[in-house]
């Protein structure tokens, strides 16, 4: 384990976690709304600082975290996560309370993650997806549903149509399904399962 693992956590955990939580809450309450969020943590590659913030805010010993691509137990990212949150890094997607995807190619099919049950739809994974930017992507989707007064266009970079088809399929099984948090170097946006996804031109 490198010394990197022990540093780079929240300087003021109580207040930093509260602020990060409010950003996430806002992201879920207003899907697709890009919320600026300065990074407080300095996690090792491939995590972005904001990803580190979200993990330090939400993950702990009760929440196994899945990393895509799969990380070795002793990788710097896994070690950092364990040290700062106490969370177990799992290689089993079906146990993931949180999943962090740093490379879309490595993301398993969404159906491999817990989807919740009809009686307990809350028992499902929250996916944290790192993207280059939350705006200016080539594929734009229109979001509607709870949290949105009117349709909102959303176009993070690097997410092509097949991905959005899968999100639409996921959200189509509402109230079951996983929830999405998109993270860039300085902002976050949420797409919970309750959001309807419409592909532009589709």
């Amino acid at each position: 384990m490198s010394s990197l693992s022990y540093s780079g956590g929240f300087a003021e955990p109580v207040f930093a976690a509260q602020a990060a939580f409010r950003a996430v809450l806002d992201a879920f309450a207003r899907p697709g709304n890009v919320i600026s969020k300065p990074a407080e943590t300095r996690p090792p590659e491939p995590f972005l600082g904001v990803t580190g913030d979200l993990l330090c805010t939400l993950a702990d010993t009760d929440t196994p975290v899945f990393l895509a691509p799969l990380a070795d137990e002793d990788s710097a990212a896994a070690a950092w996560l364990r040290f700062h949150t106490g969370a177990e890094v799992t290689r089993d997607a079906s146990r993931a309370v949180f999943a962090v995807c740093t490379s879309l190619k490595a993301l398993p099919a969404l159906s491999q993650f817990p989807q919740g049950t009809a009686e307990y739809p809350d028992r499902s994974t929250t996916l944290i997806l790192q993207v280059e930017s939350l705006e200016g992507g080539e594929t734009q989707v229109l979001l509607s549903g709870p949290g949105l007064a009117q349709e909102r266009p959303f176009a993070p970079k690097g997410l092509a149509e097949p991905f959005w088809h899968e999100v639409a399929r996921n959200n189509g099984q509402y109230p079951r399904g996983v929830d999405f948090l998109f993270v860039s170097a300085s902002a976050i946006a949420g797409v919970p399962r309750s959001t309807k996804i419409q592909l532009q031109g589709a």
Partner: peptide, 30 residues
């Protein structure tokens, strides 16, 4: 006592429940 009384682990547990609640409007998250 901690800020706002609750310890951080409890707050995390409650915050996770709140996020699921927002994602599934009207559903009661245990």
């Amino acid at each position: 006592y901690n800020f706002a009384y609750l310890d951080e682990q409890t707050k995390r547990m409650i915050r996770r429940a709140i996020l699921k609640a927002v994602a599934i409007p009207g559903y009661q998250v245990p």
